[in-house]
Amino acid sequence: MEAGIVGLPNVGKSTLFNALTSAGIASENYPFCTIEPNVGAIAVPDPRLGVIRGFIQSEKIIPAILELVDIAGIVRGASEGEGLGNKFLTHIRNVDAILHVVRCFEDADITHVDGAVDPIRDIETIETELMLADLQSVESMRDKAARTARTGDKDAKLRLAVLEKCEALLAEGKPVRALQLDDPIEQKTLAGLQFLSSKRVLYVANVEEDDLEGKGPLVQRVRQRAEELGGEVIAVCARLEAELSELDEADRAEMLESVGLEEPALAVLTRAAYHLLGLQSYFTAGPKEIRAWTIPTGATGPQAASVIHSDFERGFIRAEVYSVDDLIELKTEKAIREAGRLRVEGKQYVMRDGDVVHFLFNV
C-alpha cells in the first residue's frame, strides 16, 4: 500500500517528502530505506512499541513501514498532457491514497504558479485535472463495455452500469470517491477501475512557523473544504520539519520545546497517512525483537498471521492475544495469563489495532 504526495509547483511538496524520508523522523531503532528515486519508505512512529519494551526486554524494535511516492508536480492541462501531466497521472493511478500538499503561507520570495496564494483554487486545480482524466477513461471504457454488454455478458453489463454512474457524477463536477454504492459487487467493480478521483485524500496544509496549529485563515478555508468533501487536514510547516529532520535527538527535543510541539508534525502526518490507507498494526514481542506488523483494518487472525509467513495462515490453529493496556496493568505476560486476560482466538477473530499476539500453527 502506497500514499502519493501531490501538489502544485512551489507548495513545499518536495521539501515535505525529503523531510519525511530522512532518518531524522525516527530514532536509531526506526529504519529508513530509499527504494528508488522519488519513492521512499518511512517508519510509522508508534509509542506503544516503547511501552512494550518497558516490560519485555528485547534486542531491537522494528516499526511498521509506510511507503511514499513523490509524484511529479501538476499544472493546469495535465489531463491533456501539459507539463509532466502524463507522468503525474500514471504515478497517481498506482498509489492507494493521496497526500495533497496545499500552500497556506505567504512568501514574496517563493513564486506561486498562479501568481497568488489561494489554497481552494489550488485544490480545485488538481481535483479538476483528476476528474477530467477520469472522464476520458470513462468514455473509453464505457464504449468497450457497451459493445461487450450487447452480447449478453453479465460482467460487462455490471461494468457499464458502474461506469455510467461514475460518468454522471463526474459530469456534475464531483470526484468518483463521492459515489455511494451499496452493492458489494458494484463496489468491487469500481475499485478495479482505478479512477484517479476515487483515491482517498488527506490535505496537508503547509504553514509558516507562526501558525503551527493551523489556526490561520488560509488553513481554515482548507478545513472547511475538506469537511465538505469528507476529508481531513493536517497542518505542517515543511520548512521547520526539514530542519528538525537534520538534528540529533537532543537538539530536536530542544527545538520542539522551543516551538511548543510535543513531537514533529511529520509523526502525526505519518500516522494519519497510515490510517488513511486503511491500515493498522499488531505486535509480536520476544527477546529478539518487538515488531509492529501492518495489516488492513478488518483482517482476521489467519490473514494477520500470513504477513509473518504464508505457512502461518495455512496452518493457523489459534492466536493468543492481549492488549498493551493489559501489559501496563499486569506487567508481564505470565501475570496476564494467570489473571485470565490472555484471550484465545480462532480463525474468525477480527484483529484489533494494537493487539499483542502469539500465533500457534501447524504445517
Rank of each mutant, 00 (worst) to 15 (best):
I5G: 02
E246Q: 15
S323P: 02
T189L: 03
E139D: 15
Q303K: 11
D118W: 05
T15I: 11
A304F: 04
R271W: 13
I308E: 08
I234H: 08
K199D: 11
C33D: 11
A191C: 04
E129H: 06
K188S: 14
C237E: 09
V207S: 10
Y203N: 13
D211P: 11
V324T: 04
T148W: 09
E106G: 03
R341H: 08
E67M: 10
V324I: 14
Y349G: 10
G301I: 05
L261Y: 02
L84I: 03
A145H: 06
I65L: 13
G346I: 01
P264L: 13
E36N: 07
G192K: 15
H275Y: 07
V207E: 09
Q194M: 12
P31C: 05
T297G: 08
V69Q: 11
S258T: 09
G83K: 01
L256S: 09
V207A: 12
R271I: 01
K288N: 13
C33R: 05
T21D: 04
L132K: 10
T21K: 07
D183L: 09
V117I: 12
L49H: 04
L256H: 10
Q194R: 15
I61P: 01
I295D: 03
D311I: 10
D143Q: 13
V307D: 07
V356H: 00
D153C: 08
I56E: 00
P37C: 10
G354Y: 10
N18W: 01
V222G: 06
H91W: 05
E262C: 00
C166E: 06
L130G: 08
V75Y: 02
D134Q: 06
D153H: 05
A238R: 07
R352T: 06
P184I: 01
D248Q: 12
R147C: 00
A273V: 06
P119W: 08
V350Q: 13
P9D: 08
D122T: 02
A64T: 07
L8W: 01
K144H: 12
G115D: 12
E124C: 03
S245W: 11
A43H: 13
T270S: 15
K188G: 07
D143A: 14
K174D: 13
Y349L: 08
D118L: 05
I61D: 00
S58Y: 09
E213I: 00
K334M: 01
P47I: 10
E243S: 14
Q303P: 07
I126E: 14
S22L: 05
A41L: 03
R76N: 12
E249A: 15
V51Y: 03
I336N: 02
E243D: 15
K13T: 01
N86L: 04
V307Q: 08
P287T: 09
E249S: 12
L181H: 09
G24A: 09
K199Q: 13
G340A: 04
I42E: 11
S22G: 14
V39H: 05
G81I: 03
T128P: 02
L160W: 10
E106F: 13
N206A: 11
V138M: 07
H100Y: 10
K188C: 01
Q136W: 02
G286N: 09
D153N: 15
P296R: 15
R53C: 09
E28D: 13
K165S: 14
R93K: 15
L327R: 00
E2D: 14
G298V: 07
Q224L: 04
L169I: 12
F195L: 14
G4Q: 11
A238T: 07
R103W: 02
L16D: 11
